[in-house]
Design a protein around this nucleic acid. Sequence first.
DNA 1: ATGAAAGCGCTAACAA
DNA 2: TTGTTAGCGCTTTCAT
Lengths: 336, 336
Amino acid sequence: MRDVAARAGVSPTVVSRVLYNKAQGVRVGAATAERVQQAAKELGYRRNMTARSFRQQETMMIGVLHGIGSGRPRFNSGPRYFAALMDGIVDGAFKHGYTLSLCPKLLGTTPEDAMSDGRFDGLIWYSTFPSGENLRLLESCPVPLVLIHTPASAVNNQYPAVICDNFQGIGLAVDHLVSLGHTDIAFAIENEDFFDEAKMRLEAFFAHMERLGLRAGRADVIDVALDRSGVQNYFAAGPKHTAVIACNDGVAAAFIKHAPEFGISIPNDLSVVGFDSTDYCWELRPALTSVSQPLDVMGQSAVNLLVQSIRGETPDPPDLTIPCGLDIRGSTTFKP
Amino acid sequence: MRDVAARAGVSPTVVSRVLYNKAQGVRVGAATAERVQQAAKELGYRRNMTARSFRQQETMMIGVLHGIGSGRPRFNSGPRYFAALMDGIVDGAFKHGYTLSLCPKLLGTTPEDAMSDGRFDGLIWYSTFPSGENLRLLESCPVPLVLIHTPASAVNNQYPAVICDNFQGIGLAVDHLVSLGHTDIAFAIENEDFFDEAKMRLEAFFAHMERLGLRAGRADVIDVALDRSGVQNYFAAGPKHTAVIACNDGVAAAFIKHAPEFGISIPNDLSVVGFDSTDYCWELRPALTSVSQPLDVMGQSAVNLLVQSIRGETPDPPDLTIPCGLDIRGSTTFKP
DNA sequence: ATGAAAGCGCTAACAA
DNA sequence: TTGTTAGCGCTTTCAT
């Protein structure tokens, strides 16, 4: 910029005004402005955005975090949960002119982590495993933050959150199965120890079963464990249900995958419902009936809330709850 | 940092040394260091990464570009080409400690675009449509750049490139079909006007057909057009081939999708081979046989090359060519 | 309409 | 071992 100024015979101040103050009255002579533009072009001047970010205390960057303790979510394997969400997040970020970053030091207290001062104007935190350690770290986040998939209450309503309506979503699944004649319905959960949406879904399952006058208790909960070994154990012991609702598509997929090993036909012997309804459901044979979260909408909504926070507006309510749908595919049918 | 220094009764320099010079000999008294650490913790000090980036002229950020003129690639719709690639790119970036960014101003001459000075340490450019305009912009890129999917020759070998071995990949497809008895094989292309890999694949098709003593000429090229209308036209006119190789999975999908409308059974009447072999292939009915690009490997390789460039090493050879595989699924069978 | 000066937070070179 | 100084490139305030 100094070079441009020199070539145009003006001070750097003028260069800055000419090139970037278009909107609010340039206050520079037309001839001077012209000379500056010319000089900038000739020298191939490009603004140093890092210097600008530094000066303005604003980077126009949003970071996406997934917490520590679980691996990086994949775009292209297994249940495509993260891919769908990211499409929404990226759309939202771009709409507001923000750059979106994935940071290797996602969360923590190391100096270069995503919560470092000045690095990002705001953060979106996504995790299906909001462990205690993560939640503690979040509490000291110095920049605006929006949670996806974790209710705001988990961090004292410190930050706004976007979650799907798990209660209503599970209701759709239960109603669907009951309308097919099922009464012995199990709920499959990945790991009961974690406090997260899976638990909300499990409780919704109990509530909806009770609403319909059906029995459901701890004996109807299948903990598949993180390695899915619980599915094999369940099949090996002989299924006691005609339908199972899984807390997510990945868990549901485990049932579909292992059923043949035990001579169980899905959906004829056992109907299976997933949760998330990513495109992954189509890959399974049979294709998986699943409660759909409008992930792209959720991603965009999260960014909208975040941008509000960045602007200093306090978005309310703390939890933005988005209703679910049900995508019926091939893994559910009438009670045998 | 000033506050920390004040509290510890030292100068900011010492704070910087204590907190971040661990490796190369701190040269600070143990007691002082202890006091500094203590003060930093008490004040909840976090390094301002923007200031550091500015000072060091290094952001530890890599940007991903997709060029202008085509929409943003999606993670979760259609052929999941981008998702697979990004998994590799993100893995590569994280392995080297880089943050990865998607920038709304991807390429251009606006001040805030991705090529602005200081913003990113390096860029990865991915595009299936390297239009002339894009190539011209690339030529003036002031930061290290690696191309994916566009041969280095397209920009005078100015930047290294990662491409799959299109010639060998098409060879796999042709051999596969010929081994099934096919001799009348067409090649479907999306838009002949663009200079890109599709053209390389088309030429490879001609070459391999000739190698096997089979005829293939312009009449055997189906230009499906960007809106895929060419597929319908081809079917409506009555197919003259028993197999078709498409320049990518999306084009192949159009054949599978429209065939039923014309009473054509795939693969019984027409075998179809795609190119990319993303998980999308499994969603199609029948599932699509496709030439596989090791997209994750390509993404990681691109980052490796980029990091070399950033470090000032000149990676060679200009084109890193990665061999393809063939994933045989349900869309190919014996000649009718 | 234009310019001079100051400072964002950090770190490297140099001095003590 | 510790401190002083200077400056990364930009923008804002204040003065002219």
